[in-house]
Structure formats: structure tokens, C-alpha cells
Design a protein around this nucleic acid. Structure first.
Lengths: 211, 211
DNA sequence: CCTCGTAGGTATACGTCGTACGCCTACAGG
DNA sequence: CCTGTAGGCGTACGACGTATACCTACGAGG
């Protein structure tokens, strides 16, 4: 029978994900390559496949490692529920903001993360406290997640107060009067204010639902 | 001097974008390849480069072609402004939904589209009618866009009433009581109801802002 | 009608990617 | 020490984006 024990594993999934993150933080998503990660781990490219089925699983590990940093403990119950939801949403945003280049990977792999499960569970508890149940609660959660992931990606692709917006300010005022005007005030809004502002709008809608 | 006129161009940007969309609709984003598009146009791969600088520009053409279908005329002024915003947002969603596989490309290339400029201008007009100006208006617009693009992507990666959610329903109810419960009601929510519901929440927040 | 130069179109090739395959080898039992 | 499992590596293949060099169709000037 199989009594012989093989050589023990020298790498943990977390160690692999960390190496991948080092590569991503240094060279961006485009530099995120099986070979690059392997080199970062001082192995050959193929050695990586002893730990990971394919690139997709490596991506999953990376996303999981980043999201696992999220604290899913319910925030101070003394706070109004809207503030507590804000805290939770900000936590997820902060986790991704620590490695902005992975923004595009998060929506793809978020399913498989236990951390997201925990985060979602806490969020649902808060939404329940807000008086939401059944389909209303799902819609609210999904809406918040859509906003959150959309905002993270837009921010990564070009902040509101960035060069992309500056171009808009040069537009012919006759054809695009609002745009030209809006682009000028856009430069005043920092990324955090932008994010929190949009989130606050959503939460205000949650607060006084009539339907 | 240069009086000799060369062979005329045989392809329009629109024709190229259409061919690319045919490929994408048939084989998904993964099948979207310079060679595949060239084959669809019955040319060699390199011929494509007479019309396009690189893959990025081809992607831009595709996104532009899809978004150009958006009608940016202001909706019926008889409607309340919130309903008109809803119409505008739905239009953009519908345009992307016609080619769901491009969802991930839209946030990346949206800048360069004239259609998005027009759409934005109309949206800003509606938001102004809602009483928004300055930084409030930018934040509102950006918030709506974040929600819109986030929702489109989440929907494409797995609808709320889909297999991913079904898995959640199997979760141990002790560890994830809310999740398990919520997953069951999630199956009842269709994609349109989900999208419109989240949008309505956002708009309700816009309607009664106090700050 | 013929020439001529521009630009359309192609063939080939390079470097990089993900990864299948097969080999060698380190290492914990017995 | 022997042994079998699994770790690790070298090589190679097909597909990708695209640089380069070439041939050629074609419209204008003569």
C-alpha cells in the first residue's frame, strides 16, 4: 500500500497570493503572469502548477487574499444603521484600494471568497435592522454591491478629479454646456468625497422607501 | 509632387466594429482576437492594422459602435425628472445588454465615445432640473454611472436569480442565517426588477437630499 | 494608355503568453 | 537503505499581438 510519504509542500496559498500581489503592485495587471509570479517565488513557471490548476485559480487566490483583509465584525451598534453600512462598504473599498490594479478581477472572482460571504452576512444583518426583508433586501444589497464595484473600477480607470475630466472642460460650451460646466466643478471633488457622496445618496434612498 | 492617388479604403470603421461584434457575440470576449476579426472580414490579420493602430483601438471602435446606438434625446418632458433619468439609464443598459460580452470593455473605453458625451449632457440637464448644481451634480452623475456600470457587469457575470445564488441557499443556516434566507428570495427577482429596484433607491436618495 | 507613387493587403517571423508532457529528485515512511 | 509519492524543472506547442518587408491594385497626370 501507499506508505511512502512524499516531499512536503513548500508553499502555502497565502504565500503564493502574496507573491502575485507583489508582482501586480509593481508591474500592474499586465505584468501579472504565471512566469512572473513563479520568478517572484524563485521557481520555474511550471512549478506553480503544482499548487494551482491554472491562471484563473491564481487570480482567485489573489482576490481572496485581498478580500480576506476585510473586517466583517458588525460596527459599533451605537451608530445609526446607515452609518454602519457606510463603515462596511468603506472597508471593502479600502481593501481593494490597497491594491488598485486588481479592481477588474474582483467582480469576476468575488463569489469564491469566504470573506465576501462574511461581509455579505453582516451587511444583510444591517439591512434587516433598517427594516428590509425579502426581495427588498436582496435588491438593496445587490444595489450597494453594484455601486461599490462600479465606483472602485471607475476610480481606478480615472479619478473624477483627473486628466480625463480636464479634457471635458475644453469642450465647446455651445454643444455641451452642462458638461463643460460640470467638468470644472469635478476637479474639486476628491475620490473619497465622490465615493461617500454617491453612497450617501443610495443610503438616503434606502432610508425613506415607501414601496 | 504627390499627385498619385492610392487604392481607396475598402472598409469603414463601422464595418470593422460590426465584424468584431459578430465575433464577440459568437465566441465571447475570449474569442475576440485580431486574427478572428480579420478572418471575419476575409482579410489577413495584418491588414487590420491598416485601419487600426492596435488592439486597444479596435476595442474602442467596438465600444463606440455599441454605445452609438444610444438615443440621447431628452425623454418626454411631461415625465417627472426621476422617470426621465430612469429612461436614460435604461437606454444605456439596453445598448450594452444587446452585446453582454463587452460589459468589461465599456468602463475602459467609455471616455472616447461621443455617444457617451451626448448621453452625459442629457443626464446633466435632467439632474439640473432636479435642482442639482456644482459638486452635488457631479457626484450624482458619477454615482449613477458607477451603479449602472457595476450592475451591468455583475449581471453579466451571474444574474441574481442564477446558479451562483442557488449555491448560497445551501449554506449552513447557523453560520450564515441571513445569507441562506436571502438567497431563497433572490431567485424571485428578475434581472430587470433587480436593476430598476436599485436605480429607484438611488433616485429616491437624490429626490430628498437635505445637504 | 501608360506610368508612377501611394496606400491596401499579405507572408513571415519574433517575443510572450498559458500550459501539456515527461523527466529527474527530494524526502518521509517502512 | 529502499521506496513510492509528489515537488520541481526543461522543453515544447499553439495562440496571441504586432514589427518588418514585400508585392500589388488603383487613380491621377502625362
Amino acid at each position: 500500500m501507499s506508505r511512502a510519504m512524499p516531499r512536503p509542500r513548500s508553499l502555502t496559498p497565502d504565500r503564493i497570493a502574496s507573491a502575485a500581489l507583489t508582482v501586480i503592485d509593481r508591474d500592474g495587471l499586465a505584468g501579472f503572469t504565471m512566469r512572473a509570479v513563479a520568478t517572484e517565488l524563485s521557481m520555474s513557471a511550471m512549478a506553480l502548477y503544482r499548487y494551482v490548476d491554472d491562471r484563473g485559480e491564481l487570480e482567485r487566490l489573489v482576490v481572496e487574499r485581498v478580500l480576506d483583509r476585510i473586517d466583517s465584525q458588525p460596527p459599533d451598534p451605537g451608530l445609526p444603521w446607515a452609518d454602519r453600512v457606510t463603515v462596511m462598504v468603506r472597508r471593502m473599498r479600502a481593501a481593494v484600494a490597497a491594491h488598485p490594479a486588481i479592481a477588474a478581477l474582483v467582480p469576476v472572482h468575488r463569489h469564491r471568497s469566504r470573506a465576501v460571504l462574511r461581509w455579505t452576512e453582516t451587511m444583510l444583518g444591517l439591512l434587516t435592522e433598517a427594516g428590509l426583508t425579502g426581495e427588498q433586501r436582496v435588491v438593496a444589497l445587490r444595489g450597494l454591491l453594484s455601486y461599490l464595484l462600479g465606483a472602485i473600477q471607475l476610480e481606478h480607470l480615472g479619478p473624477l478629479a483627473g486628466p480625463g475630466t480636464a479634457v471635458l472642460a475644453e469642450l465647446p460650451s455651445e454643444a455641451f454646456p452642462y458638461l463643460a460646466d460640470t467638468a470644472r466643478s469635478a476637479g474639486q471633488v476628491g475620490p473619497d468625497a465622490e465615493f461617500d457622496g454617491g453612497l450617501a445618496l443610495f443610503l438616503r434612498g434606502l432610508a425613506d422607501r415607501s414601496s
